[in-house]
Each structure stands twice: as C-alpha cells, then as structure tokens.
Design a binder for these strands. Structure first.
Length: 447
DNA sequence: CTAGGGTTAGGA
DNA sequence: TCCTAACCCTAG
C-alpha cells in the first residue's frame, strides 16, 4: 500500500487539476483514500465540489453545504472568522437557491415551492446557522437577504423584484471569487513543490544517475528524510500561514495519522465516518455523501450546529430540512411579535388588524407591511371569579394556508401540529396548532 | 401537546 | 333552521 502521505499528495494534485470530474473520479478510484482524511484534503475535496458546481453550472443545497463545511473545517483549525468572500458566497448561494423557485415556477405552482424554500433555507438552515458556532457565516448581507425573503413571502411586489434579479449570476460570481481566493491562499499542490525539489536535486547531483524509477524513488525518500518539513520548500506557506489559512498542513496530517496530533480537537478513538481502520475506496468522490466529510470531529458536543441536511445530499429541493429529525425549525427563541399566544383566550383581535392583507388588499403596495396582530385585553371578571372569554373572530382559511398544511402533513405526518406551525411561522401566524389540527380534520372530512 | 367532543358564527 | 367551518375545552 502506498504511504498515506504520498496518497494524500497525489489526491491533492489530482483534485486540483482542471480535469473534468469523471476523469478525476477515474484517477481517484484507483487510489485508496487515506483514513482519516486530513483537513487539508477535506477542504480540497470541498473546493473541488464547488468548482464542479460552478462548471455545470448548478448551485444547490449541496453548494451551500460545501460552503458550510469549509467554514467548519477552518473554524476547527482555528482560523477565526470566515473570510468575507466565503460569507458573501454563502449569502449569494442561499439567495439563488431560494429565488430560482420563483423563476422556475410552473403554471400550477402558486409559489408554494418558493415558500417552501424560504422555510427550508431561511427559517431552518440560516436560523440554525445564526445560533450555531458557525455564526461567522451570518454576515450582514445574509441578514439583509433573510429580511428580503421574509418580506417576499407576504409581498408579491418583492417577489417580482426577486424574479427579475439575476441571482444565479451573482451567486456564481461570488463562488468563483471565493474559489480563486481559496486556491491562492492554499498555494500550489504539494506534489508540484516536491517535483520541483526532485528536479533540482537531479540537476545538482551531476553524473552517475541511471534515471530509473527506483533511483527516483530513492531520491524522493532521501529528500523527504532530509527536508521533511514542507515549509522548507520555496513558495510553500509555512506553518503559520497554513494555520491562518484555516487548514492544517500535511505535517499535521501526518501527525494525526501517527496519533501525534496535539492541536486537533479531540478525535475520540479516531473513529468516525471516515475513520475506518482500512483505507476507504470510494468510486465517486465528487458525489460522495457530504456527510462523510461532515465531521471535523465526532465527539465534541455541537448543540446547535446541525449543518448536514441528510435530505439534501442530492441537492434536490423539497426533501430538505425539518424532515425526520423533527428539529424545531423556528428553533429556540422566537421573540417575534407576530406570534400570538394561542392560550390567550382572554384577548380579542383588533378589528382592524384581523384581515389578511393577501386576501383583502387589492393594491399590492398595501401588503408591504403586515398589520401587527394587535389585540386588546377584554377579560371581564365575572361574579364567580371566572373570566369572560371572547371567541376569536372567525377567519376563513386561505388557499395558501390549506395547501401549506396539506404539504406539511404529507411531509411531516398527521399529529405534528406544533412542529408544522413552527416550520411555517409566517403562513400560520394567525393559527394555533389546534387550529391546524381542526382544519386538517375538516379537510379530510371533505374527502 | 394532541385528540376528540362541544360550541358558535355565518351563510344558504 | 340547518349545515359547516372555525374555534374552544379538556382529558390523557
């Protein structure tokens, strides 16, 4: 078996060539993957995936995931806040992954896919991001984009504006800028430096060489033995530079392989998805399940960092976040004043604010701001110390609410009313989970 | 928090 | 007056 260091160098070299994906895959197929993958190799793989997304060009949840994982890799390597270009690329891709549903909508799609994408990406994914250790990616641009998406939910004028914007080009450009920056920061492949050193050694050693592979290999070994630290090669970033780039170098990788890693976060017993005892052979690295690259470390508690969306591994919409794991999309604190207390039975809605703008405002400009769910207390103490309870005014369910509920039940199942409401806080802002349950009961009665 | 029975508003 | 959707209550 090849020395894992050499395997890593070859992998890095292959992955960073401009060859097409299938060609890189063919080459990779012949090489056993070292285990565990070094952070540097992981990043190179992720950069390659980004590059692949750019060349197709196809930006999807997979692209978002790659960017998130890069941030995570760099963070665990102690690189500090993510670069501006990384954060900018993330924001631009998130916008594109949402607005493309506006461009691509079919005749029978009344925007449900877009609403679903807003929920999936902004209410779930970005909300998770903001609360997690990866909050460095939550840039002002991302915050502004989220505000715009939330407004687009209730304001068709904003949706039209988004549809007319070339968010795809903006996202592709942003990813391209980040890739160029990352490539530059990473420096040339290690193998190139090694080859250069061998050539120099060859040129300087004079006569007496037979040019055989054995001789070359011997020279390589001597070279490694005498100058093993890659920082000594001209042009290679030294250890500090490598650190600042957010990645451990191959030296660190070697330490890791040998169990000498002091800097890396605790890796438990070295077991994890990528930590099989034997090297892993994967037929298609470029399409490898991102979750295989997910864990920079396995044993550290990452309470709020739930990046990897098992449902998005194929990048397909509609099968993502909030599925299965039942995490609360709206998440922890929900200070939104738009949410009303379902148990507040001693309040009544202000007559002026009860109407849905989407149904009753013919002028779209009037829909710019949702009326606040104002309410006033009307509890009237009665003689027997009970409270006078005013019923809420009846409000007919809109087709959007019905359709959202129908799809949500399809996806999350009957009975998860609280969860469904939290996944669509805007659409169901005037409904309680009990309302959702009652509505579903009515809907299935009609069938 | 949910399920299921009860109540009520509003339209036919 | 009846019917139904929306809303309320409460046991588990």
């Amino acid at each position: 078996m090849l020395d894992p260091r050499i395997t890593s160098w070859i992998l890095e070299f292959v992955l960073r060539q401009p060859a097409e994906d299938w060609m890189a895959n063919e080459l990779l197929f012949a090489l056993p993957l070292p285990s565990p993958l070094s952070p540097r190799l992981k990043k190179i793989l992720l950069l390659r995936r980004l590059s692949s997304d750019l060349s197709r060009p196809s930006l999807s949840a997979r692209t978002l995931l790659s960017l998130e994982l890069i941030e995570e890799l760099e963070r665990y390597a102690g690189a500090g806040a993510p670069s501006n270009s990384l954060a900018a690329a993330y924001a631009a891709v998130a916008v594109e992954c949402t607005t493309r549903f506006l461009r691509e909508r079919s005749d029978d799609d009344h925007g449900e896919d877009f609403f679903d994408a807003v929920n999936r990406i902004w209410n779930c994914r970005v909300a998770d991001l903001e609360r997690s250790e990866a909050a460095g990616l939550f840039s002002p641009a991302l915050r502004e984009a989220r505000r715009e998406m939330e407004e687009a939910i209730v304001n068709p004028v904003v949706r039209v504006g988004l549809t007319g914007r070339d968010t795809k080009k903006a996202a592709l450009d942003a990813v391209r800028v980040y890739l160029e920056e990352a490539e530059k920061e990473m420096g040339p492949p290690y193998l190139e430096h090694l080859a250069k050193a061998v050539c120099e050694e060859w040129m300087s050693s004079g006569t007496g060489r037979d040019g055989s592979v054995v001789e070359l290999y011997e020279m390589l070994r001597n070279l490694l033995a005498s100058q093993g630290e890659r920082g000594r090669y001209e042009g290679l970033p030294d250890g500090n530079t490598a650190k600042s780039s957010g990645l451990l170098g191959f030296d660190n990788y070697e330490d890791s392989v040998l169990g000498r890693d002091k800097d890396a976060p605790e890796q438990g017993a070295g077991k994890g998805p990528n930590n099989d005892d034997d090297a892993i052979a994967r037929p298609n690295l470029m399409n490898q399940d991102p979750s295989d690259l997910e864990h920079v470390e396995e044993n550290r508690e990452r309470a709020s960092l739930s990046f990897v969306d098992k449902g998005t591994k194929d990048g397909n919409p509609g099968t993502t976040t909030c599925v299965g794991d039942k995490r609360d999309c709206a998440g922890a604190p929900k200070p939104s004043l738009m949410d009303w207390n379902p148990t507040a039975r001693t309040f009544e809605w202000d007559e002026d604010s009860i109407e849905s703008p989407s149904e009753n405002s013919p002028d779209p400009s009037n829909k710019l701001h949702l009326p606040s769910a104002k309410r006033r207390e009307i509890s009237l103490p009665l003689e027997d110390n009970k409270t006078f309870v005013k019923r809420r005014r009846k409000k007919k369910w809109s087709s959007l609410e019905e359709e959202t509920l129908r799809k949500a039940v399809e996806r999350h199942g009957v009975g998860n009313w609280k969860f469904i409401k939290s996944c669509h806080p805007e659409i169901f802002k005037d409904r309680t989970e009990v309302d959702l349950k009652d509505k579903w009961r009515n809907m299935i009665r009609c069938i």
